[in-house]
């Protein structure tokens, strides 16, 4: 080896100073980069309100929003409305998740189940849940029942679709392994089918959470007498843009928190493949 290096003609050795090539990467990350955009937006809003460019009837000043939040908490309206909203969304989410998962397992493990269930659910998938609202109001009235059912309908579809997909994409070699070990059906389900479908299920959950909040916003703005949506609806009638913004911020926080929770669950439950994915 050494000999060949020595024998190499001098002209071909690489120059010690190399011109930097054109960089195609976006470069090093900026510290706290994610906060810059929102902060800029907030400053424009604050500056506009302070200078009087923004009419408070169009958009309340940021500090008004903060004091209004304080007032709403002080008289308990915020907590009450938040609790009732969270209850609706949570109930719909739980029921929808259970239904979606059970249907996915039935359709994924039996040809008859698939023949009976998959078609109707694919049709349901094509119809936005919110388009069913007039029918749901006629059937179930405008009470809690209708609200939870609407949220449930929005939740179970993505849970079903992605869990079913996860089940179908389980490697058939693992099924063969189960056969060769003569696993009882219950063990096969618990050790192979459900863990195999878990990545799909959790992906479905992320969509489901988004859908739950979306459905909540809509049902709470229709003939509701409680909840964040109702609070915002009432504020619209009185022209209180500050209360509306408090509601929007709440929805945003709830969305972020719940998505974060599902992602955390994803990381925990799928730690076995972290070495590859993360």
């Amino acid at each position: 080896m050494t000999a060949s290096v020595l024998a190499r003609p001098q002209g071909t050795t690489t120059p010690s100073v190399r011109k930097p090539g054109r960089r195609l990467k976006p470069g090093r990350p900026i510290p706290l980069g994610a906060a810059i955009g929102p902060f800029l937006l907030l400053s424009v809003w604050a500056a506009g309100s302070a200078a009087g460019w923004i009419d408070p009837r169009t958009l309340s000043a940021p500090w008004t929003v903060v004091t209004t939040t304080g007032d709403l908490i002080a008289d308990g309206r915020l907590q009450d409305n938040l609790a009732i909203s969270a209850q609706r969304a949570g109930l719909g989410l739980v029921i929808g998740t259970v239904i979606g998962t059970v249907l996915a397992v039935v359709a994924g493990l039996s040809r008859w189940g698939e023949a009976l269930l998959d078609g109707p659910i694919q049709i349901k998938r094509a119809i936005p849940s919110l388009a069913l609202l007039p029918l749901l109001v006629l059937w179930f009235g405008i009470g809690e029942q209708m609200k939870v059912i609407t949220i449930t309908l929005g939740v179970f579809v993505p849970v079903y679709i992605h869990t079913h997909n996860g089940l179908r994409s389980i490697d058939s070699r693992y099924v063969e392994l189960g056969e060769s070990l003569r696993l009882p059906r219950a063990v096969f389900l618990r050790r192979i089918v459900l863990p195999g479908a878990l990545p799909g299920f959790l992906l479905g959950m992320r969509f489901a959470v988004v859908n739950a909040w979306l459905a909540l916003v809509v049902v709470e703005q229709i003939n509701s007498t409680s909840g964040i949506g109702y609070m915002m609806q009432l504020a619209r009638e009185y022209g209180q843009t500050d209360v509306i913004i408090v509601g929007l911020v709440l929805y945003g926080l709830l969305g972020l928190l719940s998505d974060g929770a599902v992602r955390l669950a994803q990381r925990r439950a799928l730690s076995w493949r972290r070495t590859l994915a993360d």
């Binding site: 070699r173 693992y174 392994l177 863990p195 195999g196 878990l198 799928l270 076995w272 493949r273």
Partner: peptide
């Protein structure tokens, strides 16, 4: 049975 691939369940 031993298969050509180890066929271990990656989640166990």
């Amino acid at each position: 049975v031993v298969f050509q691939d180890a066929r271990l369940l990656p989640w166990q």
